[in-house]
Simulated assay, not measured.
Amino acid sequence: MARRRGVKRKKINLLGDRSAVHMEELPVFSLDTLANATSQFHEDKKLGQGGFGPVYMGKLEDGKEIAVKRLSKASGQGLEEFMNEVLVISKVQHRNLVRLLGCYVDKEEKMLIYEYMRKKSLDVFLFDEGHRGILDWRKRSTIIEGVGRGLLYLHRDSRLKIIHRDLKPSNILLDNDFNPKISDFGMARIFGSDQDQADTRRVVGT
């Protein structure tokens, strides 16, 4: 398979000397590639504002559409969430989980690149007056079943036991056929194989 321009694979250490997480064979995009794809991160390309920074729609030279999640440089909490998202999403794969395509990592910049979902998120169709009538019961049933399958995979069938901890309509993305994909794993909790509960002092979610 031909390698896309501006994308390479290498081992990266995302936390320096602190609890290093090495991601081997993760596609690493160049900054120029992502800047060109998003029209230099133009405001018109902005899809939304996440917990640790903005998300942009982009288009690569080959026409492939992507979503670029950019870590806010001022967000210390965002760095922790960014690291957790890379760790979690790189270890799970399911048709109802959003797919990570690669990343960009530098001292000053960290970005995650995902598949772009044209229908955007479920909250648009639930709460926006202009979109409410689009979701008939058949589409709603498809979404409910897909989210259930994704959660079942995370909780029971994946290599890791993963609890999302921030599941909400804005974190459920929809493809052209209204099939749902769970996204935003920054606050997820990973359990060991022999664990079914854990204590935390940090308040998470919304």
Score class of each variant (00 low, 15 high):
Asp194Thr: 08
Asp32Ile: 10
Lys10Leu: 13
Lys45Leu: 03
Ser19Glu: 12
Gln77Pro: 14
Leu60Lys: 00
Arg18Asn: 07
Ala2Val: 15
Ala74Met: 14
Gln93Leu: 01
Leu101Ala: 05
Lys8Met: 12
Gly186Lys: 00
Ile172Glu: 04
Asp123Ser: 05
Pro180Ile: 01
Ala198Ser: 14
Met187Ser: 10
Met111Gly: 03
Lys168Met: 03
Ile182His: 01
Leu135Arg: 07
Ile66Phe: 00
Phe52Gln: 01
Gly102His: 05
Leu135Gly: 06
Leu112Ile: 00
Ala2Tyr: 08
Leu160Gln: 14
Met187Ala: 09
Val203Arg: 12
Ser193Gln: 15
Met187Asn: 02
Phe29His: 03
Gln197Val: 04
Leu34Lys: 04
Ile12Asn: 09
Ile12Pro: 01
Gly150Tyr: 00
Arg70Ile: 12
Ala188Met: 06
Glu115Tyr: 00
Lys107Arg: 15
Ala188Asp: 07
Lys110Cys: 04
Asp196Ala: 11
Met111Thr: 01
Gly53Pro: 00
Leu173Tyr: 00
Gly150His: 04
Val68Tyr: 00
Ser75Asp: 03
Gln93Phe: 09
Asp62Thr: 09
Arg159Ala: 14
Phe82Tyr: 12
Asn13Trp: 11
His42Arg: 02
Val68Glu: 03
Met111Ala: 11
Gly51Gln: 00
Leu97Asn: 02
Ile172Trp: 06
Arg165Gln: 04
Leu47Asn: 06
Leu122Tyr: 02
Ser39Ile: 07
Glu115Ala: 05
Gln93Lys: 05
Asn176Ile: 10
Val147Met: 03
Ile143Met: 09
Met117Trp: 13
Leu100Asp: 05
Pro27Phe: 10
Arg149Asn: 12
Glu43Ile: 15
Asp166Lys: 07
